[in-house]
Design a protein around this nucleic acid. Sequence first.
DNA 1: CTGAAAGCGCTTACAG
DNA 2: CTGAAAGCGCTTACAG
Lengths: 345, 345
Amino acid sequence: MTKRTSSITIRDIAREADVSVATVSRYLNQNAFVSPDLSVRIQEVMDQLDYIPQATARHLAMRKKNTVGLLVPNMYNNFFAALLAGIEGVVSKYDYSLLVATCRMNQSGGYQFPLGSHNTDGLLIFADSLSDKQISQLYDRQLPIVLIHKSSTDGVDIPTVTIENKTATRKLIKHLIEDHGRRRILLVRGSENQEDAYWREVGFKEALSEHDIAFDEGLAIRGSFEREIAYNSLKEFLADPNHQEFDAVFTGDDDAAVGIYDALRENGLRIPEEVSVVGFDDSQIAPFLTPPLTTVMAPTEEVGRSAAEQLFRLLDGNIPVPVTLHSTEIVLRSSCGCNMHHSAS
Amino acid sequence: MTKRTSSITIRDIAREADVSVATVSRYLNQNAFVSPDLSVRIQEVMDQLDYIPQATARHLAMRKKNTVGLLVPNMYNNFFAALLAGIEGVVSKYDYSLLVATCRMNQSGGYQFPLGSHNTDGLLIFADSLSDKQISQLYDRQLPIVLIHKSSTDGVDIPTVTIENKTATRKLIKHLIEDHGRRRILLVRGSENQEDAYWREVGFKEALSEHDIAFDEGLAIRGSFEREIAYNSLKEFLADPNHQEFDAVFTGDDDAAVGIYDALRENGLRIPEEVSVVGFDDSQIAPFLTPPLTTVMAPTEEVGRSAAEQLFRLLDGNIPVPVTLHSTEIVLRSSCGCNMHHSAS
DNA sequence: CTGAAAGCGCTTACAG
DNA sequence: CTGAAAGCGCTTACAG
């Protein structure tokens, strides 16, 4: 690799402007008074030589990188863009840089994370990018961290920002039961270890028990919040001649809903006449599905924003909010059985 | 801000292991032979002290940041996730870090880009994040750059990776003319300065002229590749009692198509019976629109990947490919009038 | 208000 | 193969 030589340094400026490097530095950072005439001279030389201070040197001298990192399991996720938009906004507001990287769990287990105290001042960790053990390691090393869509484990107290999964799901299922008379609702499970999945399932069960409906393991399949997986699970389920009958399905998330729609349709089950379907996320495609999907809206960009804000509290030495729980709301479209003659919007 | 003190440094390791810092450095980087016994001692001490080398110091010493940047106009764009996924993959393959930032054009005009030679070794610039002038400035300072979905201006030769817009659009329009007998096709324009928009319009016009259809300015409206804008433009167009009749619309991109669908529907125009509609991008929602949208598929992740690869060629001192043009292909669904009885997939 | 000098935590010729 | 020392390009006490 060719070494990039930015050639012109603070020393060049100092020499040409006939001042000390300290003065140039002070002028640059505006953190001490520099007399007007020197200021003018320095600025002129800087313009003339097209000087750009090297961030790296500055960071080393200040023992501070002015950079935060975002770790995600992958970049394909539907709401990744919104999350990043929220984060980037506040990061740039604080004049920090943003490093992003992916990191799947079960890695070698070594210390080599792409992001850490070696290259950032703090980290935003999304869902299950890292194992609890890996998170504790970073935490033990005093790296400021905030968790997104995941809560802190016992012992460590890392601020968390996430969304309300349980109550929203409960409302969604109650809606199915109370307003559409559904009682045999198929649960499409998310991955284990995934906290959103966990709480959605809890909310699901609470709604059932509120209506004295026993939860039936025979009415639960795997979906993993993925379209293909949900599709295959349901096809398999339906292929079993002894499968339980059902009149609704909670797909876990909108992505899975697409697979569920396909499987249902292929088996001649009409939505919502024979089977109501509801999802979670209110992703971009939800309103365009046929029928438009009833789901739960989560303020993803806002989640990104507040996660970043918490991280800056930490960096500023302020006490962060331990748990930020963003509220969600159900959005009724037609897949549950509501307003059947509306068009997509 | 609290200054983070990672406390333990290479000097601590050297002292404890009773070797010189040079040796620790060599062991760390594996760039010179270090005798087995010293290696063992060093490794032990490192494990014991939980040592992590500071990237910043390393970068300063090596005059190389091992970091590349991605500049985008905003993060909301539909295909941003795929682009980023492609880029991140190769960046991490080369053991580099990835900085992302947004940058709207008309900024103060000063030199203060969030990303530049001060904090990266090279830059990926997407579409119109920066003005040509700003790009030349970076180029003049020798910063390795590759442009995505935008080509280099005269004088500077910066590698570009983009997609085939013109031919695909021409095929799409030809399809409308030849297979569906459309001849009065409304053009929904993208923003000026936007290169994709430019070439799509060229392709559009070529297809018309191949069939001896004169391009009619009265049959062109503004869309800007945005749903709202396209919607409003078309509403306005239709509200004009003297507007030209049309039997098809090329929406410029899929996002705009959503607005066009709405406006058409509100005016009682049936798709595709009365008006064929075609888009560009093959975004996630395209197959779910009603009717499913005929459009053009672009390999966005691949674009990200190859842009990053070109940047690394530059960083490695290799000669880059001046222009990488990824091919696109039209995907026929029902909004043009094809296979009307298929379901979305 | 300004400067000389030490220091941030690494790497890398230069000797041996 | 290993070490002493200079240097990367900044910042910041410490004096004056």
